[in-house]
Design a protein around this nucleic acid. Sequence first.
DNA 1: TGCACTTTCGCAACAGCGTTGCCAAAGTGG
DNA 2: CCACTTTGGCAACGCTGTTGCGAAAGTGCA
Lengths: 383, 383
Amino acid sequence: MNLGALRSHNAALVLGLLRDAGAEGISRLELAERTGLTPQAVSKITARLRERGLAAEAGRRASTGGKPRTVLRLVPEAGHAVGVHLDRDELRVVLVDLDGAVVAERCAELDLGAGAEAVLGAVSAAVRTVAAGSLAGSGSPAAGGKGSTGGGGGLGGAGTLVGVGVALPGPLDHARGVLHRVTGFPEWDGFPLRDALAQRLAVPVVVDKDTNAAALGLAVCGETGGAGRSFAYLHLGTGLGAGLVIGGSVHRGARTGAGEFGHQVIQLDGPLCECGNRGCVEVLCLGAVARGDVGEAARVLGVAAGNLVGLLDIDVVLLGGRTVAGAPEAYVRGVGEVLGARARREGVRGGAVPVRVAPRGERVVAEGAAQLLLAPLFGRGDA
Amino acid sequence: MNLGALRSHNAALVLGLLRDAGAEGISRLELAERTGLTPQAVSKITARLRERGLAAEAGRRASTGGKPRTVLRLVPEAGHAVGVHLDRDELRVVLVDLDGAVVAERCAELDLGAGAEAVLGAVSAAVRTVAAGSLAGSGSPAAGGKGSTGGGGGLGGAGTLVGVGVALPGPLDHARGVLHRVTGFPEWDGFPLRDALAQRLAVPVVVDKDTNAAALGLAVCGETGGAGRSFAYLHLGTGLGAGLVIGGSVHRGARTGAGEFGHQVIQLDGPLCECGNRGCVEVLCLGAVARGDVGEAARVLGVAAGNLVGLLDIDVVLLGGRTVAGAPEAYVRGVGEVLGARARREGVRGGAVPVRVAPRGERVVAEGAAQLLLAPLFGRGDA
DNA sequence: TGCACTTTCGCAACAGCGTTGCCAAAGTGG
DNA sequence: CCACTTTGGCAACGCTGTTGCGAAAGTGCA
């Protein structure tokens, strides 16, 4: 590690703690304790952050016998990122500030089959609208890390825009931002979505699977118990997929193929799935949903979740997606019962892994997509 | 990150590259390229390492028109670690040098039911024999990182002993080094193995599951394609378990429970397992083994491995354990066929995940246990 | 054989990081 | 009002990796 890298590493570390502290703020001494740095070093770092407009003083704590601690907080409006959720028939674009709060949103219908040009145009227009509408008049620079391209280009006056994150279902290559196969739309096969969009918008673009984006967003929002922990986001909608956060980072695998939860085989001689296997969870679970048997769907989902929990020893299971939204309590209870029974039989210390409904509802993917750009600023390497 | 932390971080990084270069060695300029540091920084770092006796010059490369590069290599005998594989009926202790090469070994029968005192005594004696027998006369200091306790204490004249790693089957707490339940031996429940052994031997002790140790050892030995990659080690012996390496690090989970591969349910209405579930891979696979149907055992194992591969998008599957050793080709072929068929159906780019027999045979766990102490010296946080 | 050239590597000076020593600021409590 | 505690900034410092320059050690050509 380089000296320059060290500086930005520590700055990102402090910035991350400032964000996690939220509106409550955090004092310099607390930052020093948590980072392991000396108070003086924190003072220098926070001074640089304040110069750049990323941090500010925000009142004081009660005194404990001496000079009261000065509370520092993140300046959320010092930077923004756009998150795009590209689904088969819908487009959702959000603008979030550094805190992750949504400051603008836009939804529209979309036809993926209309061709690359039309879709790119629609996405670009929506991004421009959302970004420009909120950033008009804001001119304070928030030069990010090393890779900052600086604004001024495509998005009018948006000096504080970090970039655009795009999340979509299909198999794709996250590292290169290239789509593989989009079921039903062969013309998208191999399309370099990241570079095409980056050229149009003249800002950094990151592409990822929808489930990964959702998992990242949930990891950031703190619902999952802080950094360094592991959880799974199970998305039950038109399909069944998972986003995995392991040790605080989104795990994607070398081919961005991780999280293929739906085609886990749980019944060797089960019904044939369109993937070619027999007895995939997806077939069994969605079949039960189609029959209206939510209990069975939840039970099957629970068995598969149990396999995952046992394999990875994760801390929380979060459920999301349209199907879950239709009967959240039933799914949480059904999955929880399976996991609970398994934990009791195995005598796991600390009891069963908790099961919850993922917060943020339908916006979770779009918000997570925006975090693809923000996370690196806060010391989380998973972008 | 601290400045001191930065120094040891970079030193560990260089040391890791030196180890990976093996007997061939590596030049300063190559080290600079791979670490991203300037050649001068590498010169300083390697000078410190040479002062400590951890690195040495080893000849020169052919000139490419100028002064030929000086080749540096790790000095393997500058440090040693002991690896202990504690099985239900057997004890295996190895002494490895910094390169991971076994320089001494000792096997003995063991009765876990003989009680803590007797087992601790047997382990301590074996460790002393293996360590002292090889380190007699070696006195050069190899002060490791920060946590070095320094030798001189319990193990006679073993100034270069980094510590002792212990690997054993049962569920346990890796972070605290405490056993949970050892099936069939309730008196071990909650036993603080790490601290008890550390006190007896007066050297650092680390405790981990056998499958995790094996996975770490395999990650280090380079069979799995270098750092940063992911693989699964599937151990088929008296039970069926897995060791997972994700992104170059052993994934254990908060409760050291990760890798519970054998009780993955793959047949909802399958035969009852002793764990209480129905249709676990372990029951199905070991049942087929008992019937002598290796093909079916491999097929079932392949389905479960396919679930794992899909979920984590790993790069390699390594098979090990006594049962696999009995018919290695059959298992590799059987599992490979299932994974291959699945990859073809899904049109995965790059083809199916390769399946291989884990190298090092019966010693893989003991060698990996020793790596529990060596890995941190080489910049791999997974200890 | 001699010289020009290339490449490697170390010494010395340097900029920048976090650290230490010291002091002003801003509270509490007697 | 003063003693005391605690916070946070200023200046000097040690140490990090970096830059500038030169010695060392080869190759290749005249």
